[in-house]
Amino acid sequence: MRQLVYAALLAGGLAFAGQTGLPGGVIPVDGHAAPPLRLADLDGEAFDLTELRGRWVFVHFWASWCGPCRKEMPAIQRMSDSLRDSALAIVLVNTAETEDAVFSFLGIVAPALTTLMDSDGLVTEQWQPRGLPASFLVDPRGRVSYLALGGRPWDQDSYLDFLRALPGE
């Protein structure tokens, strides 16, 4: 039943997307409170999503063994470069890999990006992604407002324009 409700929300989201010109594969969701996201990054620096209240946050779950993740990561780096002056925060979360694996991958594919380390994968599971990669947009009040289906070309104009146009608080 819960799945049917979710499907209905997604179907509604797709209809909404068609009406508003959301970029492909980006779907509005129900605005539930974002699950906890408190992790350390590759340098051991602690991060807590709640400290970014007041800003939109792009939360992206990935793993280096996942083909679509590898394909998408350079686009995320270019998106990050393009949005450097925007208020959007970009947060990457690696799912259940070692620091060595992550460091060697990001160092080659997206050296300007860093990532949080969900070393045991439990935080990722709390977010219930539909698969890897998975991207969510959390609004300034800490609510999950959009999700992206699979990997997306985030550096394309339609995606950048959408991200730049996210409303303020």
């Binding site: 499907a7 799912t95 539909r130 698969g131």
Partner: peptide
């Protein structure tokens, strides 16, 4: 180890998925 279990689960095809228009899935 938990990390291996998590990785393994993500490599399995989902037990259930409402595939949206143009949505891929693999596992």
């Amino acid at each position: 180890p938990q990390a291996n279990r998590s990785t393994f689960r993500w490599t399995l095809l989902p037990e259930s998925r409402d595939l949206q228009a143009d949505e891929p899935v693999g596992g």
